[in-house]
């Protein structure tokens, strides 16, 4: 079928500002948006630049704004869109490096603030794993799915308006460890997220939930963090 791709281009070596370029191609209904972009790059304009790797929604490389919404290009199929006119832009809220490639430095910087690694410096059992019940693992199983694609933070109006806001992804990662029964750095992380630029900057707008390609309810986890904070205050 005939489709058109209106893509927001930017070549840092030639352009002063981003500009639009439209490509008209013939695509199969089962094509992903990623396939369409590759078709343009392979057959029409080799300079079209975007990140990609696994092409099936697990690595998170190809997060971009498709028809106004942050999503993974490899999970969006042409046939699922009524309008065959596609508007493709880089993720909002991230500095653009070139075309659809954006800079993730600030994103990872904020992630680091919540100590995104397992901390338990007690001596573990010698010949066994630390025990954890299925119910205890259940608490973090949803937050563990996160592939750090950036879609949530990119879609968050609070993050747009406050560059210091930790953002949904960092807060979700904070929960992954705070909610883990084996981790011991809960107090430190609570201190980090209990900040006006931490959980309190979330205004429950829910854009992150819509954007998440792994269908994680990020806002739910942020409110869970808030309830954890309340529990400690009372």
């Amino acid at each position: 079928m005939d489709i058109s791709l209106k893509i927001r281009r930017f070549n840092p070596e030639k352009d002063k500002k981003p500009n639009w370029q439209t490509f008209k191609i013939i695509a199969e209904p089962t094509w992903k948006i990623l396939d369409c972009l590759m078709h343009v790059k392979n057959e029409i304009d080799g300079t079209l630049t975007f990140r990609k790797s696994c092409a099936h929604g697990i690595c998170g490389s190809d997060a971009m704004k498709i028809n106004g919404k942050a999503a993974l290009a490899c999970q969006e199929l042409v046939k699922n869109y009524k309008s065959k006119k596609f508007v493709i832009e880089p993720l909002p809220g991230f500095p653009v490096i070139k075309d659809l490639v954006v800079d993730f430095d600030l994103f990872f910087e904020k992630l680091r603030k919540v100590l995104p690694w397992f901390i338990n410096d007690e001596r573990p059992p010698a010949d066994s794993e630390r025990l954890q019940s299925p119910e205890q693992v259940e608490k973090i199983l949803e937050s563990v799915k996160c592939i750090l694609c950036g879609g949530c933070t990119s879609s968050c109006p609070s993050a747009w308006m406050n560059a210091d806001y930790l953002g949904p992804a960092a807060l979700l990662k904070a929960w992954r460890f705070i909610g883990d029964s084996r981790d011991h750095a809960t107090e430190e992380r609570i201190r980090v997220v209990n900040d006006h630029d931490g959980v309190w900057r979330c205004h429950t707008i829910f854009n992150c939930v819509e954007a998440c390609p792994k269908e994680i309810n990020v806002t739910d986890h942020i409110t869970m963090l808030r309830r954890e904070i309340f529990k400690r205050k009372l």
Binding site: G68, P92, P157, W160, A163, T204, I205, N207, V209
Partner: peptide
């Protein structure tokens, strides 16, 4: 800001965003 104010109007509206 990490995005301009107009981003609010260029991003797709969802129930949560409309309510807010």
């Amino acid at each position: 800001w990490t995005a301009s104010f107009s981003e609010h109007f260029r991003y797709k509206f969802h129930t949560g965003m409309v309510a807010w």
